[in-house]
Nucleic acid binder design. Sequence first.
DNA 1: TTGAAAGCGTTACCAG
DNA 2: CTGGTAACGCTTTCAA
Lengths: 354, 354
Amino acid sequence: MSGIAEVARLAGVSKSTASRALGGTGYVSDDTRRRVEEAAAEIGYVPSTSAVSLATGRTQNIGVVMPYLNRWFFAEVLEGIQESLLERGLDLTLYDAKPGTDGRARIFEDFLARKRFDGLIAVGLEPDDDEVGRLVSLGRPVVNVVGPTDSTTVVAIDDDYAARRATEHLVALGHRRIAFIGGQPDRHWAQVDRRRLEGYRTAMSDAGLADFTTHIPSDVTLPGGYASAVDVLADTRSRPTAIVATCDEVAIGAIIAARRLGVQVPSDLSVIGIDDHEFADMFSLTTLQQIPREQGRVAVELLLAHLTDPDRPKSVVRMKAKLVVRNSTTALDPRQSAVAVDGRDSVGAARQPR
Amino acid sequence: MSGIAEVARLAGVSKSTASRALGGTGYVSDDTRRRVEEAAAEIGYVPSTSAVSLATGRTQNIGVVMPYLNRWFFAEVLEGIQESLLERGLDLTLYDAKPGTDGRARIFEDFLARKRFDGLIAVGLEPDDDEVGRLVSLGRPVVNVVGPTDSTTVVAIDDDYAARRATEHLVALGHRRIAFIGGQPDRHWAQVDRRRLEGYRTAMSDAGLADFTTHIPSDVTLPGGYASAVDVLADTRSRPTAIVATCDEVAIGAIIAARRLGVQVPSDLSVIGIDDHEFADMFSLTTLQQIPREQGRVAVELLLAHLTDPDRPKSVVRMKAKLVVRNSTTALDPRQSAVAVDGRDSVGAARQPR
DNA sequence: TTGAAAGCGTTACCAG
DNA sequence: CTGGTAACGCTTTCAA
């Protein structure tokens, strides 16, 4: 009834002309264009997305797959993606693919196969081989935010560097009994957390502290960090003097645990995280800053580039997290601190990475 | 090339028959159906969503509009919606409409108008009149999770009750200097928070404590609660003995602030929230429990009911939050507690509402 | 129980 | 610069 035919009728032109005038492609006289636009405005014409998709093969929609919605990192990335798509007039279809669930299987088997999108952004998905296969076989560009660097275009921070830098910061402050907290060998142990653990190990070895290397398993959540830290900090004798957490949520959980147990941060215990979480400031948390919202925006740009140029080679954007020193870390022994502190680590204002 | 035509050719039937066999509607012999299904499986046939939408007028997609993604309540509702849609094979398109942004305006003007969905779920949107108008004019069913009870079908908890009950709990414990924290008169002050403040006021009046009524403004976030609480608790003389927080995030912020200031919870200060946030247990927070995930699921059911029966009258599902007593609230004066405590409020296991 | 053909609302090619 | 027409891939009458 309405539709472009109606617009064409009102403007006194053919459907094709109306389409051209509205779409901006092809030759149309300025006068005709104006008449068509007026007609469209008059009846409040909005093109049918399904008809457009059918005719053009483009959905003007981007799919986003992620395993969690309720964790800071994921929510921030999602907001970055959403912002960026919004500016470009693109819709966003969300798939919540929790590891090990039936729902995840259905998403890969049925939902994604429908290809209701021109391209896909996978956030921290860590797909298994089968899933990677399905992703590739969609024949649509895919960008990963945090993920396998080989099969697709990826944007992420350098996890190894972040964890090393965090560890080095503590080493420079004179700490030796430095533990790493986060990640569970048995449950879904994310690659990110393994890479960070490796970075920590490397830094410990490089500092000649291999013997002090300790991994405290923990759920990668705030309560998870709290629970594990309570456990570890309870024993006053064996307690580490510093902790590298796999992310700020775990770090903050550890800080809360320390406070509850009467362990002073930073004087009795230094804690450093990775993220620069929205709560980091409130807990005076020293951390390696990443900006997930920005990663989301970059992911959109990369995906669009792939859409524009299908032959564009895959690329890897690896950002460097930046040390932000707050008040959760301090020199092990006050008398040594002036000497031991690495100049790079002096307290200062945080700057944006990139 | 592929498409249903190919399936039909392989099965040796017409497109119409293939469509009927696959769609499940209309008469098809069992034998034919099997042949068609095999053919479809063989070439991995997946119907084009745009073609289906164009032909049927159904998108098999639900739109979800919310103002925040990174807050517990919203993320939980979203996960509930997603779960529920996933079971039914429906897609979910997400719109992030932050109050007062250009993006929000564009969403209402352009994005929603595209009607890429069969129905819409608005979560805590609190649309202004203009926005409500646009929503209605879409001619698609709309369900609100938390929102205006008049214009559309709504699912929410009874905020007035929750806040009253929370306040009554503290009154029953003998508290008089009870303050309410959360919500900013100047900024986007959510209706939810105003309703809760009203519930608190009513309960205070009913208890003859109108003179003690105090509203502490605060951002409705954990750091917001922290900041405001630090402010209020600093003055030992005027400090309240108990706090009703508009939600658990604010309540937890207040608890963290109290700990930092050396104010013992609950002996020096009782704190009660509304939510039963994922951190509530870790902070031993007494609270009025709601289950947003469940609200999301119910919203989907209601929306689908409206889709099935367009004449279905609007309805309001108002859930009652349930008091969960943990360890952040206690009797004001230990000697009076045995008498003062309302029997209903004795500590016990939480049960699910509904 | 099956098939032919007419849409669904656009875009895009090809003459004019 | 414009209009007619086919095509996009599927569903849905309507006859047979």
